[in-house]
């Protein structure tokens, strides 16, 4: 595993009117690593994730993914805001899996996975279908390829969503509470797919409440509260021997 830095965030700050959602958040994720972000709701975890792929505009700070400054182009002493088209190009390399799946309801499972490769990457339809079917098989849904999202369970929909993200062959996949909207018995099938993905060397940033997953799969864990990073470090240290009293309290509360 190469250990170069894939994601670098510096002083990311974001306010929603009077509410400061992010306050100088910094982060570093190495290529091939799984980074989990934990913390109480409203702590800014999801907002930070959405700043990485420019779904939210940050007020201050900067994020680099794969050595590219997100949202801007440097030209001497000027930073030029990127156009719609250039932003789309940057987003191609960053997959995202949402809490509420957000599959395209008018497309079947396999069409959901093919849509990006065909429409955005310009792959020929036959090749895209073949790859999409292979990805669906990989997430255990080879037999559901022609089902519409409304015919699938929450766990199955989320696995299609993961396949859709993988279909773009991204450098990085962002997971925004991927199991929070699922019935309890469906959580493990999604986590298993994510574990498999992590084992294959995909770089992942996962906002989650599943501390078990964080302990077993994550390389680093970051605890956020009130828009700030409270503690960050190797998963084993943060989860078993946290330095901050607040982190320890949160971990105890989740386990209780």
């Amino acid at each position: 595993m190469t250990k170069d830095i894939l994601v670098k965030a510096i002083d990311v700050t974001k306010s929603f009117e009077a509410f400061k959602a992010l306050d100088k958040v910094g982060m570093e994720v190495k290529r091939g690593e799984v980074a989990c972000i934990i913390g109480p709701s409203g702590s800014g975890k999801s907002t930070f994730l959405r700043c990485i792929n420019l779904l939210e505009r940050m007020d201050e700070g900067a994020i680099w993914v794969n050595d590219e400054l997100m949202g801007y182009r440097r030209d001497g002493n000027n930073l030029h805001e990127l156009s719609d088209k250039e932003i789309s190009r940057q987003r191609r390399r960053i997959g995202m899996v949402f809490q509420r799946f957000n599959l395209f309801p008018h497309l079947t499972a396999v069409e959901n996975v093919m849509e990006g490769p065909i429409q955005v990457l310009g792959h020929p339809a036959a090749k895209a279908r073949e790859e999409a079917l292979a990805l669906l098989a990989r997430v255990g849904l080879g037999d559901k390829a022609n089902h519409y999202p409304s015919e699938l369970s929450g766990g199955q929909q989320q696995r299609v969503a993961i396949a859709r993200a993988m279909g773009m062959q991204p450098d990085l996949i962002l997971f925004d509470e991927p199991t929070s909207a699922l019935d309890p018995e469906l959580v493990s099938e999604v986590l298993d797919v994510m574990k498999d993905l992590a084992a294959s060397g995909m770089t992942m940033i996962v906002v989650t409440h599943e501390l078990g997953f964080a302990r077993n799969v994550a390389n680093t864990v970051t605890f956020m509260e009130a828009g700030k990073v409270v503690e960050t470090g190797p998963a084993s240290e943060v989860l078993t021997a946290p330095k901050s009293a607040r982190t320890a309290e949160f971990i105890r509360a989740v386990h209780a």
């Binding site: 792929n53 779904l55 719609d84 088209k85 789309s88 190009r89 987003r91 191609r92 960053i94 997959g95 995202m96 949402f98 509420r100 957000n102 599959l103 395209f104 849509e115 990006g116 429409q119 955005v120 859709r164 993200a165 773009m168």
Partner: peptide, 23 residues
């Protein structure tokens, strides 16, 4: 159309026009 659909279309790298037309 749910806001999540716009976001999902953006995250697979669609431009504004393509998102309107396809999704």
């Amino acid at each position: 159309v749910d806001a999540g659909q716009y976001e999902a279309a953006r995250t697979i790298g669609m431009t504004q026009m393509k998102m309107l037309r396809r999704i």
